[in-house]
């Protein structure tokens, strides 16, 4: 396996690799199921073998050798440093700020990184689409040292206003997190299938800072429901290395293997 750059990968693979690269070795990372779990386990399989994965089921330091389908798969308990109760994981570990990185997805996201996973369209009592809801996300977004968001970029998702604030990013702009008393740092980076967005240090507005190889800024702007700010030094990120791609595909191949006793 080499670090040579590759071709022939998909946009989702690029997104997952880009998200994995955001996780530094040794960090404690609160992981949701789906893309965050895949990216976190890819990081652990490549550059961050000491990444501490924390699942809200109470598994601290889980080291799965295959991708779990749910946050409570047996492989997580079997490989964890400790299995604690659900009240404990939220009260003792998340709430005091012991977790470095929270990894979240979104059904809708606005320019300040506020996230909706509750309802879309209509009103709350009669929504067009009822989504799963909050889960652990509001307090992950509030209390982790920083938040990494991983989400596919399109007009349905990247909206001028979210229909419901399930998890707070930067609220309505600078100073809002401090005013609300949110002690974590908020969204540091948003990884999409088109590129990477980071909050402007002054305005807190999500700004396109990197494109994935082969993607244009016009594509990214066309997939965004607000007038997307673009960084002066807009760069193109590195494609997946052969090592990253092989590790990711090996992980994905374990998804169907859910029946190990």
């Amino acid at each position: 396996m080499t670090d040579e750059l590759t071709t022939g990968w998909t946009a989702d693979e690029m997104m997952t690799v880009a998200a994995a690269r955001q996780l530094r070795d040794g960090a404690a990372c609160f992981v949701g199921i789906g893309l965050p779990s895949t990216a976190a386990n890819l990081a652990r399989a490549t550059h961050a073998p000491n990444l501490v994965l924390i699942y809200e089921s109470g598994c601290l330091g889980a080291k799965p050798d295959r991708l779990p389908l749910s946050i409570g798969d047996g492989i997580l308990a079997d490989t964890a440093d400790a299995v604690v109760s659900v009240p404990e994981v939220f009260n003792y570990w998340l709430q005091p700020g012991r977790i470095d990185v929270g990894f979240l997805g979104a059904a809708q996201l606005d320019r300040y990184g506020n996230i909706n996973t509750t309802v879309v369209g209509g009103d709350y009592d009669a929504p067009t689409v009822r989504l799963p809801g909050a889960g652990g996300a509001p307090e992950i977004a509030a209390s982790c040292g920083e938040v990494v968001v991983i989400v596919r970029q399109d007009l349905r998702t990247f909206t001028e206003r979210v229909d419901f604030v399930t998890s707070v990013g930067y609220g309505t702009g600078p100073g809002d997190r401090e005013r609300l008393g949110l002690r974590g740092g908020g969204p540091r980076v948003v990884i999409t299938d088109l590129g990477v967005l980071e909050p402007d240090p002054v305005t807190c507005e999500l700004t396109l800072t990197h494109l994935h190889p082969g993607v244009t800024r016009e594509q990214a702007r066309a997939a965004t429901g607000w007038d997307l700010a673009v960084a002066d030094g807009l760069a193109t990120g590195a494609p997946p290395t052969a090592r990253e791609l092989a590790a990711l595909r090996a992980l994905e191949a374990t998804k169907s293997d859910g029946r190990r006793p």
Binding site: F90, N91, Q95, T118, Y124, A134, P138, E139, A142, S143, F164, V165, T166, S167, V168, G171, D176, L180, G181, L182, R183
Partner: peptide, 13 residues
């Protein structure tokens, strides 16, 4: 008592 829900739309419902 907890540090939670702050700034979200959940308390409104």
């Amino acid at each position: 008592v907890l540090r939670g829900y702050t700034g979200t739309d959940l308390p409104g419902h």
